[in-house]
Design a protein around this nucleic acid. Structure first.
Lengths: 212, 212
DNA sequence: ACCTGAACACCGTTCAAGT
DNA sequence: ACCTGAACACCGTTCAAGT
């Protein structure tokens, strides 16, 4: 497990092959199949390993809102540090790591006093939003797998994307061109948390509506 | 392009290979590379082909809210009919189909009078939520690629998942076990639209707060 | 200009044979 | 009980050679 995570962190998603892992462990590729069902299990276990720590750390917050925000923050850090986690999370919703996220978010949503029949929708909204952005950040990281100065490379990449967007037809793409202006400067983490707050605000406004 | 979509629809994501496509077109696999850069382009073009129609159809709504909901509805139909679209959308955020979604949602959010500095966050929240659920539905469809009676298979699958969740430790997984009770009966489309409404409600409550 | 199809450099997975 | 590593059945992509 640790060897797998090491390979994923050092060389990216695509670098984890049974051959590479076997070489790293100085064994035959077939040997791994004695301990692990298939590649899916390998990735799911590695992902859960990391998500579990995030959830445990975040649970120590004071208010339910704080805990949810801490989970989001922790998840952001995890994906930032291990981009393959984002890809794996968004690829397979039935893996244990996703269930763990669901339980963690769900218990906080319960604590916020959301009526039971609305809880599933609220939790799914939060979860889907997180998984959606997780996939996007992972895709971004896939473009520049390993680099000493990632912040710099990222900004150059966003600048190039923005420049390409600015070349689009203004009549057909007014909004995208407007976004292009702020794209290189925008803060991913801030935007991630803003989305969480937006969903929580929607939850509250619906709550008030239901019980005036 | 049409041949590629045909293969994807009939046999699922994994069935689209250059060899299969070449056989379908009665040509050599190398010939396709004369017209198409690589597999990524092939999938991105096929996806945009379908998303473009969704967005064009949805744009005919009356109010901005209706248009956004129509886009979500159309996207749901598209993913329901072509599950590979969901997978492809959630995998690559820089493809044209995603930009098309962004522009479509963005113009409606602008029309709703959201202040410019908040627009990017709102649109990202809606978009990420959509892409997140898209990936989840696509993963669900990957489990039972082709079947005459998908609704039946789906329900059986969800029933099996719910049963497995019910076996989890009640002390550690109270929320997931609660969800398990309603999981087999829940309506994916309803939940998708509920999430959209939640984000829109959050947007409105923040708008009111900003300009009292 | 466009097509052919063998060849290359990989995959995940299996399995007879070993210890 | 656990490991070895060749073999199988695939991939995406390239490219010399054709028309």
């Amino acid at each position: 497990m640790e060897a797998a995570i090491e390979i994923l962190d050092k060389n990216g998603e695509d670098a984890l092959t049974f051959r590479a892992l076997a070489a790293h462990l100085e064994t035959g590729s077939g040997a791994i199949y004695w301990h692990v069902a298939d590649k899916d299990y390998l990735l799911a276990a590695a992902t859960d390993h990391i998500v579990a720590r995030v959830m445990a750390d975040a649970a120590r917050g004071s208010s339910p809102r704080d805990v949810i925000r801490a989970m989001a923050n922790g998840l952001f850090d995890a994906i930032d540090g291990h981009p393959w986690v984002g890809g794996q999370l968004s690829r397979n919703p039935w893996q244990y790591a996703v269930l763990r996220l669901m339980e963690g978010i769900g218990s906080q949503v319960q604590a916020l006093g959301v009526p039971e029949r609305a809880q599933f929708n609220v939790v799914t909204a939060l979860l889907s939003f997180m998984l959606g952005l997780a996939g996007q950040y992972a895709a971004g990281a896939r473009l520049f797998p390993r680099d000493a100065d990632r912040a710099e490379v990222r900004k150059a990449h966003l600048g190039a994307v923005a420049a390409k967007w600015m070349e689009l037809d203004p009549a057909e793409h007014p909004f995208v061109r407007q976004v292009a202006k702020v794209l290189p400067e925008h803060d991913d983490r801030e935007q991630f948390l803003a989305g969480i707050d937006l969903i929580l605000a929607g939850m509250e406004s619906i709550q008030k509506l239901g019980a005036p």
